[in-house]
Every structure is written in structure tokens, then in C-alpha cells.
Write a protein that binds this DNA or RNA. Structure first.
Lengths: 229, 229
DNA sequence: TGCACTGGATAGCTACGCTATCTAACATTG
DNA sequence: CAATGTTAGATAGCGTAGCTATCCAGTGCA
């Protein structure tokens, strides 16, 4: 297909697609002449992945390029490739093999997991723990005792679904699965918060910002004090 | 304390603190004279929260201001306040009460949760689901059956720890807890992935980027099970 | 032959998050 | 009391990111 069709299919402006081509996020089409190139389904999907990484995961174009590069040209081992991909994900940390991450170390020890300061995710965890602590909501033992096992169960499932027969597919699954399911998990938690709060305290759905207060009546569901507690 | 001490305590440059003051993220100190003001511990903590929201959660300064404003001046109900806060969190969505979010709706129905398109998190979930789908890793039923209950258990714990006696503390806990524990959960999942993969497939810790390849030998762990293909 | 479309190159634009400078009003110190 | 240094407040500038717009000449198609 021609580039104009790519624009139609993806909804991404032509100038932006050209920008992605320039920046090396999108491979060039197969040139059929000096001013003509052929694009395929792979390009359509690639653009979708680019937008997913930048808009939904929140990566910069530069970081998205790093992630895509790892998928296209993986390291020797899947484990290394995966580690490199994590380094490109937010929050951005400057990895230092010699640094110590006391909060992350303590957490990992309590979980019985290996502490290795070379893992970018260790520095990311340290930063997240420090941020929560500074805001007055540290990750205490009780909370860790809940978060740890549930998150681990999720991770075990993720790994169990990794395609083992195809190395390329495995890399893609590992990298994109880790990155793209994060927004899903986060959104599910936010919705669960709202649902639990509504059921527990019997709160009505919120009014739309400019709208009326009586709109809460539109929901026949859980209003005043429906359930437990 | 004076502003210079605020600079020392937080490590944030003076010009940046003035910028936060200008932008309304940080309340002004108590003016003691035309060119003198007194700052307190609340300001120190506030700056830490600002940095946590911008650097770790990834909010823009504008969105951080919205979140902080909700903490300072909550809506009528905690539920409304919380909903508004979620709207400021990434991924950024333009909420439309009339829109339909089919993927999110299907997921919520399977989970037995209320679907209300006015919840910003519904639009956020829709976007996350669409992104994963476009990248070739949709949230199928099996995965949802795992993610859903575990995330819900986490959310239940979160809510159970909400302070009930103090309305101000409750708002702060709800808003900051939702936002600031997300990076923690995400980092824990990434680390769990690495740990599970290492245990299951016996992979050595990764070499530091510029370093030697033989560092893989440093792990005494087994190298069994050459993975697929 | 005419014309819309294309790849490729380059320049420009807007928003963001600071950063730097200036001024006048103070406080503090000796 | 004078010298010194800090401060609030205002304004201007700066570097990066992520596009966006324009131009040009080669090309396919009618």
C-alpha cells in the first residue's frame, strides 16, 4: 500500500508518519522507485505500537525507539533484552551498578527475591518507594504482604503465557506485554477502588463536572448504603 | 524557615521553587514583611509531593496542580474528589459521558463491576485495552480471570486502610495512595517478571551494558532448559 | 501531456519546565 | 547607622520534544 493509505488506516497524519520514519521508529517501505515505496500490514501494526507506547504507556519517542529496537534486534538472551527494555520504561532512572537501594533491597528481601542493583527495575522501585514515603504513605509490611503475593501471581501468569516455540514472538510478548499491560492493571485498580468504595460506603456515581447533581439518579444500581460495612 | 532553607532541605533549586509558587503548586509562605516570608514543614513535604507526582508518577506540572488542588479543596464527597483526581492521572483521556467504551464495558461486566462511562478510569481502561489489542496482546478472558481478582484484592486492602476519622487525611490517602502506589506496583511486577524468569529458566543476571559477557558466569545458578526454537 | 501523489530534505512552530536577571524592600551585623 | 546580604515579585529567556508545514523533483496513471 502507499503512504496515503497508511495515513487512512492508522489515522496518524502524514507529517507524523514521516517524522517516525526519520526518527527510525518505523522502517522504510520497500522502495519501488525513486519516489515510490510499498508499505504492508506490518507498518500498520508498527504505527499502532508506536502510538501505544508513546500515548498510552507514556514513553518519549526516543525511549519508544529503544524499545522497538530491542524487539527488532534482541540481545543474546531474552533476559538481557527484557532487562534493557525495562530500563527504557518510566520512571526514568540512571542505573548505577555500584549504587545501593536500601528500600528496594529491604522489600526484595522480605519477598524472598534476588536483589541486584544492576536491574533497572530495582532503581525504579527505590524511587517509587522513596516518593511514597516522602508523601507520607510508605509501603509498610502489611501492605507489602498484600501487594507482593498478588503481584507475583500476576507475574507468574504473565510468564506462563510466554510463547516458547518462537524466540521472536517471545521477545515481543515479554517486552510489549510488560509495558502494555501496565496501563491495564493500573486502570483496573482505579476502577476497583471506585467500585469497592461505592459498595462499601454506598456512594452514588459522580456527577459530570458541569452537569446536574440529580444525574446520580440515572443509575439504578448501588446508591445509598447497599452493602456491607 | 526562610526560602533558602527550603532550598537546602529539599534540594530543589530556588528558581524552581519560585516557579512552583508562581504556578500555584506551592502555597506562599506567611509574609512577615514586604520582602520576607516564613515557610514551614508543610512546605517541605509539599515540595516532596510535587516532585513525586511529576518525576515518579509522571504528571505534568499542570496536572499535578489539579491533584494538589483537590487535596487542598476537596469536592463535596470523597468519591467525587477521587474521581476528579483519577481524571488528572495518565493516560490522558478526554472524558465523554455520552461515549461508549466497549472493551472496558465487557471487562467490567465480566468482573461484575459497575460500568459508568462518566468514570475517567473507564476511558483510561478502554484506551489501555485498545493499545494492548493493537499490539497483538489483547486482554483475553484467561488473563482477565487472573488480573481481575488479584487487582481487586489489592484495591480492597487499599480501601480498608483508609483513615475514617479524619476527612482531610482520607482524601489525601485516597488521592496520593492511588497515584503513588502505582509506580510501586508496576516496579514490583517488573521485578517479579525478572525473578520468575530467572528461577524458571535459570537465567543469569544481565551484564551491565558496557561490561563483559562472561559476567553471566557470576551466577552459580543453573543454565538448564535452553528456551525453545 | 497533464496532474496528483510521493519520498526526501529542511525549516518552523508551540508547549513545557525550568532558569536567569532585575529591582526594591527589607533584616542583620558590627 | 551604614554596609551587606537576602528576599519577594516580576519578567524574560532558554533548551528540548514532538510534531507540522513547505518545498522539490521524480513518478504513476489517465
Amino acid at each position: 500500500m502507499r503512504i496515503s493509505e497508511l495515513v487512512e488506516r492508522t489515522g496518524v497524519p502524514l507529517a507524523t508518519i514521516k517524522y517516525y520514519l526519520r526518527e527510525g521508529l518505523l522502517p522504510a517501505g520497500e522502495a519501488t522507485a525513486a519516489t515510490r515505496a510499498e508499505y504492508g500490514e506490518a507498518h500498520v501494526r508498527r504505527i499502532a505500537v508506536i502510538r501505544a507506547l508513546t500515548e498510552t504507556v507514556g514513553l518519549s519517542v526516543q525511549k519508544a525507539r529503544e524499545v522497538l529496537r530491542l524487539i527488532d534486534q534482541p540481545r543474546d538472551s531474552l533476559f538481557d533484552t527484557f532487562g534493557q527494555a525495562i530500563e527504557a520504561l518510566p520512571p526514568e532512572v540512571t542505573p548505577e551498578a555500584t549504587a545501593d537501594y536500601p528500600r528496594a533491597r529491604a522489600v526484595l528481601e522480605k519477598l524472598g527475591q534476588l536483589y541486584d542493583p544492576r536491574f533497572a527495575a530495582v532503581a525504579q522501585l527505590e524511587r517509587a518507594l522513596a516518593a511514597a514515603e516522602a508523601a507520607g504513605i510508605p509501603l509498610d509490611d502489611a501492605r507489602l504482604a498484600v501487594y507482593g503475593p498478588h503481584i507475583r501471581a500476576i507475574a507468574e501468569f504473565d510468564i506462563s503465557r510466554m510463547p516458547l516455540d518462537d524466540a521472536t514472538a517471545a521477545v515481543e510478548y515479554a517486552v510489549l506485554g510488560t509495558a502494555l499491560h501496565e496501563p491495564v492493571l493500573v486502570a483496573l485498580r482505579r476502577l476497583a477502588h471506585q467500585d469497592v468504595a461505592a459498595r462499601r460506603y454506598g456512594v452514588a456515581p459522580p456527577a459530570t463536572p458541569p452537569a446536574s447533581r440529580k444525574s446520580a439518579r440515572k443509575s439504578p444500581r448501588a446508591r445509598s448504603r447497599p452493602k456491607g460495612s
